[in-house]
């Protein structure tokens, strides 16, 4: 009894320590954002200081945060929905109507993630340029959807595999077509999985920097380009960069916090039978 109490305390402390370690960079970023530039670079680092919101004021004065945030929201949501729209039927076909090539197709899809994005930058840039979709939200939504497609298909495929075939067969016996099977049987049964896949895709889109930096300039620029614009080769910028980063990650942090139950539920979906 005594042993288990001590063990519980130890595990709790360990849990808190790991959580603190993981959260420390974010905490430090938020602290730095309330410092002056000189305080931000002070050595040894300051843990007690006079907080100021000057960096936030300067960040807001120099760039219109809300237009970047709106682009981030539209592009991330659009990219995730588009990826899901293609992936649900694809994963359904692979899970319930597999062919001898299904497994290798899935592996091939995943293998496209192994190519460094810069390797296809020039062809994609040329394509965007000739289609006149450089610096447009639509263009970035397509790229984000394609970028996340392999992961989304894989995740949905594993969730769908957990659904007993008999349920779908019973539906078919009752006269349900493919669409009704997906709409009324498969999707309600795997909703936590689909939701968590969508959430993960949303987070990946929100944090993506390579394509957004290269394919947008101003009209469709999301928050990642907003953050990048505060890094300076000559001059102190840590406080301003931290302020920009804090307000850029705030929406997704809040969103993650609110949906954490859904995320965890989806991740462990089908783990216990």
């Amino acid at each position: 009894m005594k042993d288990s109490a001590a063990k519980r305390i130890f595990i709790t402390i360990l849990g808190w320590l790991v959580a603190l370690l993981l959260a420390f960079p974010i905490i430090w970023m938020v602290m730095t954002s309330f410092k002056t530039e000189t305080d931000a670079i002070s050595t040894p680092p300051l843990f007690v200081w006079h907080p100021t919101v000057a960096s936030y004021a300067e960040v807001q004065e120099r760039a219109n945060y809300f237009s970047f945030a709106l682009n981030s929201i539209l592009i991330s949501v659009g990219g995730s929905l588009l990826a899901l729209a293609f992936s649900v039927p694809a994963a359904y076909a692979m899970a319930f109507h597999p062919t001898p090539r299904t497994r290798s197709t899935l592996l091939w899809m995943l293998s496209t993630k192994m190519l460094p994005p810069v390797g296809v930058l020039v062809p994609i840039y040329l394509l965007f340029s000739s289609l006149n979709i450089l610096d447009t939200r639509g263009g970035l939504i397509i790229v984000y959807a394609l970028m996340n497609l392999p992961i989304v298909v894989w995740m949905l495929f594993t969730f769908f595999k957990e659904v007993p075939r008999e349920i779908l067969e019973a539906g078919r016996m009752d006269g349900a077509g493919v669409w009704n099977e997906m709409r009324y049987l498969l999707m309600p049964l795997t909703l936590p999985g689909i939701a968590s896949t969508g959430l993960l895709s949303l987070i990946l889109c929100w944090n993506e920097a390579f394509w957004s930096l290269n394919l947008t300039s101003s009209a469709a620029a999301p928050l990642t380009t907003f953050i990048a614009s505060f890094s300076s080769p000559e001059g102190l910028f840590f406080a301003k960069l931290s302020a920009a980063s804090t307000i850029a990650v705030a929406p997704i942090l809040i969103f993650g916090w609110l949906s954490q139950r859904q995320l965890v539920r989806g991740m462990t979906f089908g783990a216990v039978k």
Binding site: A63, Y125, F128, S129, L213, N214, S217, S218, S229, S231
Partner: peptide, 22 residues
């Protein structure tokens, strides 16, 4: 219309843009 970028990103962006005549 202003596009403010980190120095190395700016070089990469601008070179890609000029080389592809975008």
């Amino acid at each position: 219309r202003w596009v403010v970028l980190e120095e190395n990103v700016l070089r990469q962006r601008v070179t890609t843009d000029i080389a592809t005549h975008a």
